[in-house]
Design a protein around this nucleic acid. Sequence first.
DNA 1: GGTGAAAGGTCATTAAG
DNA 2: CTTAATGACCTTTCACC
Lengths: 155, 155
Amino acid sequence: MTIDQLDARIVSLLTTEPRIGVLECSRRLGVARGTVQARLDRLAARGVITGYGPDIDPAALGFGVTAFVTLQIRQVAGHVPVADQLALIPEVLEAHTITGSGDMLCRVVARDNADLQRVIDLIVDVQGVVRTSSVIALDTPVSYRILPLVRAAGG
Amino acid sequence: MTIDQLDARIVSLLTTEPRIGVLECSRRLGVARGTVQARLDRLAARGVITGYGPDIDPAALGFGVTAFVTLQIRQVAGHVPVADQLALIPEVLEAHTITGSGDMLCRVVARDNADLQRVIDLIVDVQGVVRTSSVIALDTPVSYRILPLVRAAGG
DNA sequence: GGTGAAAGGTCATTAAG
DNA sequence: CTTAATGACCTTTCACC
């Protein structure tokens, strides 16, 4: 139920240089090309690799402000779930339910601080949201990364 | 300083079906292959597309617990910055400085709740961290997504 | 290991801002 | 006039059987 060193090295190599392909990857690791392909298929089948989509930087799209919004929720019977309504807002990049009484934590982006107000207003207008509390991300000294974890998991 | 509809459709298509390649992509959109290639090069040059790495699911690696840890920081002169020390912990997937007095917000993963305690202890031991406050993500009704934003940005 | 296919590059032509 | 799109051709390289 985990990965081995070869898996970790394959993922690691493909993460740092995604365009090299399976053949080049096998050459650099000194294994047969079929081995790499079989490993990748297995990782995809197990759900470890969920996709190869292009990574998009919201800031480069003009959404330079990132904020984390904590929602206090009052669940109302017979209404559209809060999460479904949040999913309709493009600026809500992810949403989690968190420990505590009916709370959620959302990552949102906006074009600027004024635009953030607009996005928060959209969230406040969601049925079931009682109130919100936001913190703005000023800097991201550690941006999302998975490689160290993969290496740690691979031994 | 933004993207147009064709850019959005290219990114959209490649995100939902990353394995189709440039040629197939151009066929489906009814444009020349060179156009798609030029657009992708431009998007990469502008920093909109930051990479094509395989997407890894931490849960499938055995790290099924996600938590958001807020740190209260006391900056100490002459020491290694807190962020640099956090970066050494594989379970810290990202870290942001946030509004407030020297605070940070980290996304961490752990194998289980007991393991989360170990990770938090690692964070507490970081020089300059005064105290921490954690919330555990129970569920993720909206997992990280960028497509709605891309479509919104593309017109 | 062989083979069909795609990527990546260049070019001249054409269209549109 | 500048920028972009197009279709053509070419070579290298890869994925699949």
